[in-house]
Design a protein around this nucleic acid. Structure first.
Lengths: 132, 132
DNA sequence: GTCCCCATACTCGGATAGCAGGTGTCCGAGTTTCTGGGG
DNA sequence: CCCCAGAAACTCGGACACCTGCTATCCGAGTATGGGGAC
C-alpha cells in the first residue's frame, strides 16, 4: 500500500503555487518542469483539484492555475482526498455480524492519521521556510 | 490507496486462531472456509506470517497453522508490516534539498496511525467479546 | 499382543496466469493576446 | 490616432495505451497418521 505519485505531485504543486504568491496564473509547463513530469499528466491531476475548488484554472495565453480564495485553510487531508478519494483505507466486506472489531480498530487508527493531516495546512509550511 | 485484501485475511485469520485457543494446529481449509477464500491463496498469505515468526506451520495429517509463542504481544502493526511490507506510505524521490517538508508532514502523520496500530493487539480484541 | 513397514491422505510452499488501477501520452476544443490594416 | 478583424500561440480537458503490483490458481514435494502383516 502506498500513496500514489499523483498525490505527491499535487502536494508539491500546491506548495509551489503558495510560495510563488503571484496574482497571475502559473502555466502547467512551469509547474511540470519543477517536478520533471509530463505537463499533460500534471494537468490531469490538477483537474481534480479544480473540481474540488482548491485551485482555479485560466484559459488562453498567459493562462494557467492559481490558488483559489481561502487557500490558507486547505489542509493536507483535503488534497489527499481530492486525489485518492474519500473512501476508507480498509474495507471488511465480510458478513460476520453488523460490526467488525478489526475494522473498528483500523478505522480508529486511520482517524489518528487523518486528524494530523487535517491540522497541517500548506500555509503552515510556508512560515517555516521550505524547500520547493 | 487501500490496504490489500491479503491484510484483511491475515488479520481475521490471526483473530480466528486466537479465539479457537486450540493446542492443535488448524487446517487451511477450515480457515479459508470462514472467509470464503481459496485455501491455496490463504496459504500464500500465511507463509508471510510464518516467516515473521508469528505463527507456526505443521505439516502432515492433522497439520495446519497455530499461533507462535508470545502471540499475545503481536500488534496489528506487526501483521500489517508482514503483509504490506515495512516501507513508508509516502516516498518523495525528488531532489529538492536533503529534506522534503511535505514528506516530513506525511511521515509524522503516518507515525500517528502506526502508534495506534502498535498499541492494539489481537489479544485485546478477545477480551472484548468479538465477532469472528 | 507388539512392533515395524508401507500405502495413504493430508498438508505446506513455490511457480504460474488473470486482472485492476495507477502512470503516462496524445490530440482536439476553447480562449486570450497580439499584430496589422483600414477608417 | 483609434478601431476592428484575423491569425497565432498558448492553454485546458477528455479519450486512449502501457505497465507494475495485487488477486487468484494449479501442481509438486514433504510429512505425520493409520492400518496391516509378520514375529
Amino acid at each position: 500500500m502506498k500513496y500514489s505519485k499523483a498525490t505527491n505531485y499535487a502536494l508539491h504543486t500546491m506548495l509551489h503555487l503558495a510560495l510563488t504568491n503571484s496574482t497571475k496564473p502559473v502555466g502547467v509547463q512551469i509547474l511540470a518542469e519543477q517536478q520533471k513530469v509530463s505537463p499533460t499528466y500534471l494537468s490531469k491531476i490538477l483537474t481534480k483539484l479544480v473540481k474540488e475548488g482548491m485551485v482555479t484554472s485560466a484559459s488562453g495565453a498567459n493562462g494557467g492555475y492559481s490558488l483559489a480564495k481561502g487557500w490558507e485553510s486547505i489542509s493536507f487531508l483535503d488534497i489527499i482526498y481530492a486525489i485518492e478519494g474519500k473512501s476508507s483505507l480498509f474495507d471488511c466486506d465480510f458478513d460476520h455480524g453488523p460490526e467488525c472489531s478489526i475494522q473498528k480498530v483500523m478505522l480508529r487508527s486511520e482517524e489518528k492519521m487523518e486528524a494530523e493531516l487535517r491540522k497541517q495546512t500548506i500555509a503552515d509550511l510556508i512560515n517555516k521556510k521550505t524547500t520547493t
